[in-house]
Amino acid sequence: MGLESKLGDSFITTTIDKVVNWGRKNSLWPMPFGTACCAIEMMATLATKFDLSRFGAEAIRFSPRQSDLMIVSGRISIKMMPVLRKIYDQMPEPKWVISMGACASCGGVFDTYTLVQGVDQFIPVDVYVPGCPPRPEDLIDAVMQIQKLIGDETVSVARMAKREEISQATLG
């Protein structure tokens, strides 16, 4: 990029945390778990008008093995919950979860026999997006919140341990 010619024989100092977090937060690979109308707004967020690639999170992977940000957008029934949990478990660490919209966050208007009243009962959620459905701007804001969270993290086993703790508490 020509950076080397400007720097010459000098070098820059930084910390491992900063470099790794910089890489992680600017190349989030979302795993879309779209089950309802929120997914339409998620698609709009990814499309040209709102363009999530401006925030480095446009590489949607439908394979959980290649993604690190799960966007739960839509209603999750008790029949769907094992699928969601399996996909979450298949994602490699480090991983983050956005619970998009009222239904994913608390069941929304569907206070019924079949609907999970908030996915945070079963998977750890980092950022909740209010709205029914939320505007694409809200989802972009949530991604930026995730980026902030990533920026505060440290490359250590501590995070893994914390995750495991939450996971044990929610699932057992």
Binding site: I78, T112, Y113, V116, G172
Partner: peptide, 16 residues
């Protein structure tokens, strides 16, 4: 006669 909020299916749900 089935209650709208169910008979505790969603509360008891534990991945089988």
């Amino acid at each position: 006669d089935y209650p709208l909020r169910g008979r505790g299916e969603r509360e008891k749900f534990n991945f089988g």
